[in-house]
Nucleic acid binder design. Structure first.
Length: 880
RNA sequence: GGAUCUUUAGCUCAGUUGGCUAGAGCGCACGAUUCACAUUCGUGAGGUCACUGGUUCGAAUCCAGUAAGAUCCACCA
């Protein structure tokens, strides 16, 4: 292959990925379990602990969805880590996943059903499960192709789908253990319920929004005669339709107005029921009239009040959102219709005493936006107290490092306030809860519920008693909390070198929903934390710093960017300027900068290859440095490699990329390669180019691999090479080159200041008594592009460069020097200001006394240098 | 109501335990150009580090407060 004039990512990327995949280089090299002679797994740690491993799991994208920009960031982060540790020689295992996305997929499928004129109620649970399975199978595959396009170097053979058998098995094993440990219980509680989707949610899934609403005042007349002035209670409510479910009115025990009424009763409007007046702290004397209706079946606070006072729970709203257990004329109305009628009837009865507009927060379904109904339902709950407590102990023991670090205490706080976890969902698309209910009431000695794995059966028989399967499925977070365990094939029997994971990388927004639960579950199942480090990324915002959303129309599709600029450019661009946990704006400019870097590297390689082609040297594994530029680039590359290693250790991706970027561009291309146009050290060129390619490979895998495949001397895949060793060089020689750079830069800057009117570039350079310049005439001439460099020979003339330690002049005519007079004066003033600042510092005895020695020395040296510089510049000014 | 985070150049962001003249990319201005690259090269302009106090020899950095913005948790009859 030869190098085209510019790098066109689209011409190579898919072939390169296919070649990697065919070569099987993404598979880990150390087995998960050592085996005995019969091929059975054994617990022989000796056999595998000698090799080091790096494991990381992919937060599974929706199996039948498309990747969004957040996935793009996720892959860029995770794959950079994976490829970096692969180059560092670890047995890396990046385990890909696909999510059945229980609720999301269900919502999509249900819409599809509706389009076809059907509803879920026409089918059995098992039918629906099979239908969604087919639906997903047909849609599947897009996201896996997109992961490949992004360059994810994951072990495809080990892809885990969240409904795989081993996942379900593990989840059932855990559930059984929890059931036996008494951590699972069934209870009738209020849950957040979406009447449209007809399923309950966990607290964490509820989306609270501030909304405008109305607060109505309703009069409840006292049932008993009263001696005092009070003959009725006014209660305030935003939900008048629930009054049929009221079983008490509460007042605050300290509220003097109502003290005498406690224990008496009121008539419930529009009904013939009377309900008691109770005393409870929940009633706030300052709010409204201080009296509050209590509806235990339809309000979370009221439920708790009801618990305290053993109030009856009357359920007046059904699962489909219509009224039940209410007077005939209201029966079957929707809640909205019922509210209207109740208000109308109250008004007619003269019991509606006022209304005002308020703003309050209301729970919504995060998918369809429907207002959630607190609904009384029997559900399975996990008693989280012990799990959370254990998790806190391990976190406080610093067994997991967090990036950003403050998330640890946030998580501990969360665990402290964690309520029991509702794991039942009324959605067919998910893992069936392996519990069966006794069908025959007469078998009184048998338990009401039994655990059984045979969830493919609707009915089972045990000890002659028939049991019917619970129709519900697990909350997807219950199964995904096992993710590190199931992906690494962790088992009770054998030591697994990939568990715990080295790092869990995911979005900061699911710290509670996912990370918190993986930690609890990992500890419960394996006794170990499931990962040693957690890196949380923030949201990718649009270019103006706003959240991306379909409704705003500001969504950026990562695949469009990959097509337009290449996968590497996208990865480099999305990593730039990003740090752990921060929401950050996306900037297409950064992707463009990434694209430019790829092209730059391509052309650097093209130049190096052309030099190698012309060279008559035989290919050699060793190198020597023969001039200053070579020593200098070795020094710079060593610094770069060290810096990148430190950055990766601390998950500072943006800094790592920045470091390599400037080493490749500002140092290697701009200075070293320019100098190599004179001195052609082919074996060093090869080694240094390889080092830079390898250093960039984790972040830009495609272009580095394409170049690698193109280089005449390189073999194998760069993806599996070893991280470069540091280069040997002469530090004094390297520092000399640094001085040449300073001279050249100063000369360029002065030439530019002389301006185009003076046709600056035709001036010669003069030097006096300066061996560094004298010994490097050719190099300086090439870098500076001046016509000639000559010894001064005689009195100073032309324009002296503002260098303290070198006597170098630009051979400009007197007129041009005069034109430069103002610039020179300004320069003297500005150096003078710096000198003043330094002198001021030294004149402070506290500084000299208390600041570290090396700083004081640096200050002294700077003063000496600047003093000399000013003297020389002033001398020059006098000459003019 | 509780908590966390952010505020640095026109834009998007770095700036690790306090320490040289606060940096990068993009944008802007001026200049260059056969001979790796216009996805290029060179030079430059541009910052009261949100504000007010404090600690310190020294503060963008640490502390306290104020302002603006963002996010999360809880709750609002």
């Amino acid at each position: 292959m030869t190098f085209a004039k510019s790098y066109e990512p689209g011409d190579y990327e898919s072939d390169i990925y296919a070649a990697w995949e065919a070569a099987g280089i993404f598979e880990p090299t150390v087995p998960t379990v050592p085996t005995d002679d019969d091929g059975n797994g054994i617990d022989d740690r000796e056999k595998i602990t000698n090799s080091s491993t790096f494991s990381i799991v992919m937060p599974p994208p929706n199996a039948n969805g498309n990747l969004h920009i957040g996935h793009g960031l996720t892959i860029a982060l995770e794959d950079s880590l994976t490829r970096y540790y692969r180059l560092r020689g670890e047995s890396t295992w990046y385990i890909p996943g696909a999510d059945h996305a229980g609720f999301e997929t269900w919502v999509v499928y249900e819409k599809e059903l509706e389009k076809q004129g059907h509803t879920r109620f026409e089918y059995s649970r098992d039918d629906l499960y099979a239908r969604v399975w087919d639906f997903v199978a047909k849609q599947r595959g897009n996201m896996e192709l997109q992961l490949r396009a992004l360059g994810a170097s994951c072990a495809w053979d080990d892809l885990t789908f969240t409904l795989d058998e081993n996942v379900i098995d593990r989840v059932y094993t855990t559930f059984e253990k929890m059931w036996n440990d008494g951590l699972i219980y069934r209870d009738e509680k209020l849950v957040n319920y979406c009447p449209k989707h007809r399923t309950a949610f966990a607290d964490i899934e509820v989306e609270h929004k501030d909304e405008k609403g109305t607060l109505w005042d309703i009069e409840y007349k006292l049932a008993e005669d009263s001696d005092g002035p009070v003959h009725s209670l006014i209660v305030s409510t935003t939900r008048p339709e629930t009054l049929f479910g009221d079983t008490a009115v509460a007042v605050n025990p300290e509220d003097k107005r109502y003290k005498s009424l406690i224990g008496k009763h009121v008539k419930l409007p529009l009904t013939d029921r009377t309900i008691p007046i109770i005393a409870d702290e929940h009633a706030d004397p300052e709010y409204g009239t201080g009296a509050v209706k209590i509806t235990p079946a339809h309000d979370f606070d009221d439920f708790e009040v009801g618990e305290r006072h053993q109030l009856e729970r009357i359920k007046v709203i059904s699962e489909n959102g219509t009224m039940i257990n209410v007077p005939n004329e209201y029966e079957g109305l929707t809640t909205t219709e019922c509210r209207k009628k109740v208000l109308k009837d109250l008004k007619e009865a003269g019991l509606l005493r006022g209304e005002k507009k308020i703003e309050h927060s209301v729970g919504h379904c995060y998918k369809c936006g429907t207002v959630l109904e607190p609904m009384l339902k029997e559900q399975w709950f996990v008693d989280v107290a012990k799990l959370a407590k254990t998790a806190i102990v391990h976190l406080e023991n610093d067994e997991i490092r967090f990036f950003p670090a403050n998330k640890k205490s946030i998580l501990i706080n969360y665990y402290k306030g964690l309520k029991d976890w509702n794991i039942s969902r009324q959605i067919p698309w998910g893992i069936a809860i392996p519990m069966f209910r006794k069908a025959d009431d007469s078998a009184t000695d048998e338990p009401d519920w039994i655990f059984d794995r045979r969830t493919n059966l609707r009915e089972i028989e045990k000890a002659g008693v028939t049991y019917v399967r619970d129709e519900d499925t697990f909350d997807t977070w219950f199964s995904s909390s096992h993710w590190p365990i199931v992906c690494t094939d962790w088992t009770e029997e054998n030591y697994n070198p990939y568990y715990p994971l080295n790092v869990m990388e995911t979005g900061a927004d699911i710290l509670f929903a996912w990370v918190a639960r993986m930690i609890m579950m990992g500890l419960y199942v394996t006794g170990e934390v499931p990962f040693k480090e957690v890196y949380l990324h923030g949201l990718v915002l649009d270019e103006h710093g706003k959240k991306m959303s379909k409704s705003k129309g500001n969504v950026i599709n990562p695949m469009d960017l990959v097509t337009k600029y290449g996968s590497d450019a996208f990865r480099l661009g999305i990593l730039r300027g990003r740090s752990a946990g921060m929401n950050q704006a996306f900037s297409e400019n950064s992707v463009i900068a990434g694209r430019n870097l790829c092209n730059k590297l391509w052309n650097i390689s093209r130049l190096v290859q052309s030099i190698v082609d012309k060279s008559e040297d035989s290919i050699s594994d060793s190198y020597t440095t023969e001039n200053m530029g070579e020593d200098w680039i070795c020094r710079e590359i060593n610094d770069c490699l060290e810096q990148v290693a430190a950055d990766m250790e601390n998950y500072r991706f943006a800094e790592a990329v920045e470091t390599i970027y400037s080493t490749i561009w500002d140092k290697y291309a701009d200075w070293f390669l320019e100098s190599q146009k004179l001195f052609r050290n082919t074996s060093l060129l090869k080694h240094t180019l390889e080092a830079l390619l390898i250093a960039l490979h984790p972040f830009a895998p495609f272009v580095t691999e394409v170049i690698w495949q193109n280089l005449s001397w390189a073999d194998g895949f760069i993806a599996t090479k070893k991280w470069p060793k540091s280069f040997e060089f002469d530090p004094i020689s390297a520092e000399n080159f640094e001085n040449i750079r300073i001279i050249v830069s100063e000369a360029r800057s002065t030439l530019a200041a002389l301006g185009s009117a003076n046709n600056a570039k035709k001036y010669d350079l003069l030097y006096d008594n300066d061996s560094l310049v004298e010994d490097n005439l050719l190099l300086i001439k090439a870098l500076l592009k001046v016509p000639a460099i000559n010894p001064l020979n005689g009195a100073p003339r032309g324009l002296r460069l503002a260098l303290a330690n070198h006597e170098v002049y630009l051979d400009v005519p007197e007129k041009a020097v005069n034109d430069y007079r103002d610039a020179l004066t300004e320069k003297i003033l500005s150096v003078g200001r710096e000198l003043d600042a330094l002198n001021l510092r030294m004149s402070n005895p506290n500084y000299v006394e208390k600041a570290p020695e090396h700083l004081v020395k640096e200050t002294k040296d700077a003063i000496t240098e600047k003093t000399a510089l000013i003297a020389r510049l002033k001398q020059q000014l006098e000459l003019i």
